[in-house]
Design a binder for these strands. Structure first.
Lengths: 142, 142
DNA sequence: TCAAATAGTTTGATGATCTAACAATATGAA
DNA sequence: TTCATATTGTTAGATCATCAAACTATTTGA
């Protein structure tokens, strides 16, 4: 259907395919965890960046604080996270992972590292380093 | 928060960041189009692979035919696509983009090519070709 | 020919998300 | 200090995306 007559067209094709594959890989990992997608995302952020308040969590997730309230309610109900009163601002809560939440994060992280390891093995050290350099350049600018 | 003590950890970090950036870029492109996300995805598939029946469209989208019915209903209502009776199977419809739908696809595709062009310019021809090679290897196996 | 399979739709449910209005608290200028 | 304004988080009411299961119409194959 598509011809790759130019470099940018070929790059686009491969970027889109990579993105689609990564997307379906991520969904299947989340599915296997028995968590809702939004819960899994919140756990990912909290595990990666550490405890933070509702506003920052919403910001990192790219959603409103209203939606974040609902997500954190469910995480608390499921025993994955807890709200702790912020010391210096009584309007605010700090959200942190519980032991169970931390385990769920680590489980998810292991899946990611396995995928990265698989790619690194496929490419070899030299090309893996090259890929990292290219991704860094792109991430800085896009 | 993270240390990149191993190659796979550093690769994972950069892959995840790249994926997140691409995700939010894609949402903002769709938002600017005034289409619903599911409609935009269907238009992307139909524009890329051409006309197909409901079942194949659902398969390409990775959703059920029930959900696809709703999406195609809205695409028809909006004038972006139309159902045509399949010649050799009267249970089946072929879904195809209208003129307006094709324009919407091309608009979306232009955005993609602009992003690819931006990346290609950032990297230069040599590194762009390298990136394509690496993505191809990964896409074949993941 | 007719039972089983298939394509698509409908129905009833849940989940993810938004905006707008709200309550509680913090902040800063008069 | 005080009070208007800003900020943090929650709630309410809405839309959209999605699924599974039941259904209709049609095709297929033993």
């Amino acid at each position: 259907m598509e011809d790759h007559s130019t470099l940018k067209e070929e790059l686009n094709e491969n970027l889109v395919e990579f993105f689609d594959r990564f997307t379906s890989w991520e969904s299947s990992v989340i599915e296997s965890s028995n968590l809702k997608i939004s819960d899994a995302h919140a756990i990912e952020i909290l595990g990666h960046y550490g405890r933070m308040n509702m506003k920052d969590l919403a910001g990192r997730l790219g959603i409103t604080t209203g939606t974040t309230t609902i997500t954190v309610d469910r995480l608390e109900k499921g025993g994955f996270a807890q709200r702790v009163r912020a010391e210096h601002d009584r309007r605010s809560y700090i959200i942190e992972l519980t032991e169970e939440g931390t385990q769920a994060y680590e489980e998810h992280h292991r899946h990611h590292l396995n995928l990265a390891a698989e790619i690194a093995e496929l490419l070899g050290d030299e090309e893996t380093r090259t890929l990292i350099v290219l991704l860094k350049k792109i991430n800085e600018r896009i």
